[in-house]
Design a protein around this nucleic acid. Sequence first.
DNA 1: TTTATACAAGACAACAAACATCTTATTTAT
DNA 2: ATAAATAAGATGTTTGTTGTCTTGTATAAA
Lengths: 165, 165
Amino acid sequence: MRLTRAAEYAIRCIIYLAKQGRGVLANKNDIAERAEIPPHFLAKIGQDLAKAGLIEIRQGAKGGFVLVKEPRDITLLEVVETMIGEIYLNDCVARPSGCNALSACGVHQVWIRARNQLRDTLRQATFDKLIKKKICIPVSDVKNLTGLNNTRGRDNSPEPVKNLP
Amino acid sequence: MRLTRAAEYAIRCIIYLAKQGRGVLANKNDIAERAEIPPHFLAKIGQDLAKAGLIEIRQGAKGGFVLVKEPRDITLLEVVETMIGEIYLNDCVARPSGCNALSACGVHQVWIRARNQLRDTLRQATFDKLIKKKICIPVSDVKNLTGLNNTRGRDNSPEPVKNLP
DNA sequence: TTTATACAAGACAACAAACATCTTATTTAT
DNA sequence: ATAAATAAGATGTTTGTTGTCTTGTATAAA
Ligand code: SF4
Ligand code: SF4
């Protein structure tokens, strides 16, 4: 499992749409600008999200993206797996045939367990909950968006992870 | 986070050594053969494991790898993170400075939670427990190792994941 | 002391994936 | 008709994975 940029962008896109509410159309370039997503890349991501039934794409003048489902019916897991495929952590979880240990292998069992936990956690995070909290994607109020992830120059600074409680 | 081949190989290597017990020397090529690890690649992996203090490498004739710590003091997390670096799932968990949402972002909090759960699960898996169960890396008995992951020709067959209970 | 054995260290290369961008349609409101 | 907006997919750049290979060093045993 690896969260790609595309997946993070997709989440931001859905957040943006969820804030507006289901059925409300949003211009693609607006989304791209506010959520700091490369516009062309968003086009591709949007197609994936549409194929998965999360959004609907309106073509033509005054077109854009529309959220199809209610935010409370969309889970973080859904969005993430739409973009990066099903999470399985270890290869042998996805294809047990590779190793004949199957359920007998202790390590395998740990991966299964870790995978299920992770997916459950992401499944519990629905977008109605997510948009209630403050979020770094402003939808209409802030014009001067300061803090977005514009780590373009991909710095690999060590910067230790804080272990929040 | 992505479990690489190198990480899976490292786990198998430690499993092999753990089965023999701490302080018992094992020939590198034997490990490579039994655990189905490309020999030269194992050399590289071994160096990482040695740097992390998990094993000791004996050079020269009759050299090889020796487990330094007791199996019960080695966790799956330790081995995995030695090989792939600290697990953080999402970039912004590792570098909160990228996004000024910090603890305010609902999505961020989910990633933090998921990350902690995952790491805890892997930390609880110590190698004394792991080698008690049957495992697909035989150490001394089986000569005809049948079921190892020799998916060399990297098949991308769909083969759906079973949802074990 | 010489030799064969075994690992160290790091360069290098093939391949795949991520991360986009660009071009050429097609669709739709006006 | 025209302009606005997305679709579809070809293409390119960069990074990461998964090794292999070469040269050198340490050690045991003859
Ligand atoms: S040894 Fe266990 S964890 Fe590793 S590939 Fe085989 S079944 Fe999976
Ligand atoms: S929007 Fe939230 S989850 Fe996404 S990068 Fe910013 S802090 Fe992280």
